[in-house]
Design a binder for these strands. Structure first.
Lengths: 234, 234
DNA sequence: CCTTTTGGTCTGATGGTCTGACCATAGCTC
DNA sequence: GAGCTATGGTCAGACCATCAGACCAAAAGG
């Protein structure tokens, strides 16, 4: 029988973790370039740590080029440290993410059509009813919509597994930079419009109990967004 | 726009993490009741920590009832601290785990049938060819088999998502206790036998490039094992 | 019975983190 | 332009977690 051997314990200091989380937020666009960083004392409260830990984390971000000092304030750097990410890499990433979504989300919708409570259906419909043409708001709505579907499927593990895939999508700096790129502005607005329509179609089918229609709508939705991402964004 | 707010940083001491990992290994059967715990100095090296950290972790396990002192040695307790876990809870857990597997694994096999390299197909076939009637060895083989399939699907994110679901299965103490229970011994041997046959059928169809057959085989395999788990194990 | 191995205990040191205070400068408002 | 507020910068002292190393007693094994 195989002898059990344990892996070494990983160490992550408090300030290292804060630096990583702030860097992630910057890379994914949650903290957009040029926007002010929250003041140290506010970050202390949110993270639940001492000011020295936050200061050390921000110091590291300044050194790495993610954050700049402007007067007595800190702001997110306009030019982030670059990673080499080719167009083909980008398309491969998108294809990979959507391939996983195509596996999981039809199953989620099918289960949700059968299991969702009236309250869950109402929540899904409410979220689908939102309109915006702002990318950041739409991303939040998009995430909430698909998360609400996943919660309604009645399988906590499937929900958790889906959340992982979704976090890869929404946590990807490369993916976010694709969406936020100025050159893609017109196309992104179109994606927002067609996605909002698709969300409504999915919610409508769900509320009416039309399982096949709901499943077909989500497959078409994912297919459409993926095609737009791969073929039309630069 | 929604203001970004960070969650507090979670703290986990070195000894707490070691205690948790040792407790997990005990609960999942990787460290069976009655077996000696590795010596402190060995665990120090494996975890990469000081003896004091390991000692504190083991002290906690002794207090909690997972580990007992026998002379100058430590052994895994014969009677583990019980969690209240009813038959219905157990069946719900199994159903949930297999529902997720039924979503992901047919898709994995379909992609693997198209994308697997000759080497990957050979690996899958080799693992499927193994025979044992020992539960622990079979669990390891089972895990390796499904992991090899996932790696061969050519989508790192799908592989990662599947690994998460699989780790829930193999990391579940309740699940393991079900398998290791003396009362289920005969039925478990039967599950091992039919699973080994199913693995061979899947690998055989994969090697021959019979995509539909491979997918059908994995669906039937998961269905069969789930039924045996839910209906026949106590 | 002797040797080896293991758990038990202790000391001193280091790095990480905290709390609290105070100061200088930039930003904002009137 | 002045005054106030808010923010980053710096500092001191304290505590906690963890480490390395050493030594001892008792159990296990040959």
């Amino acid at each position: 029988m195989t002898k059990l051997v344990f892996d070494p314990v990983a160490r992550l200091t408090v300030s290292a973790e804060i630096r990583q989380r702030l860097a992630d937020a910057i890379q994914t666009g949650q903290l957009a370039p040029g926007t002010p960083l929250a003041p140290e004392r506010v970050l202390c409260q949110e993270f639940g740590v001492a000011r020295t830990s936050v200061r050390e984390a921000i110091q590291g971000l300044i050194i790495a080029g993610y954050v700049e000092r402007r007067g007595n304030r800190c702001v997110v750097a306009e030019q982030l440290p670059q990673v080499n990410f080719t167009g083909d890499d980008r398309k491969a990433l998108v294809a990979q993410l959507f391939e996983v979504r195509q596996v999981i989300e039809p199953a989620i919708v099918e289960l949700a059509a059968r299991r969702a409570t009236d309250e869950e259906r109402a929540t899904i419909t409410d979220i689908a009813a939102r309109t915006t043409d702002k990318l950041e708001e739409f991303r939040e709505t998009d995430r909430q919509f698909h998360s609400a579907l996943a919660r309604a499927c009645g399988n906590p593990l499937l929900n958790e597994v889906h959340a992982k895939a979704l976090s890869k999508l929404f946590g990807s700096g490369e993916f976010a930079s694709l969406l936020y790129a100025e050159v893609n502005r017109v196309e992104v607005i179109d994606i927002i419009r067609t996605s909002t329509e698709a969300h409504r179609a999915i919610a409508d089918a769900l509320v009416k109990g039309h399982t096949r229609k709901a499943v077909a709508a989500v497959i078409a939705h994912l297919d459409d967004v993926e095609r737009r991402m791969v073929e039309r964004l630069l």
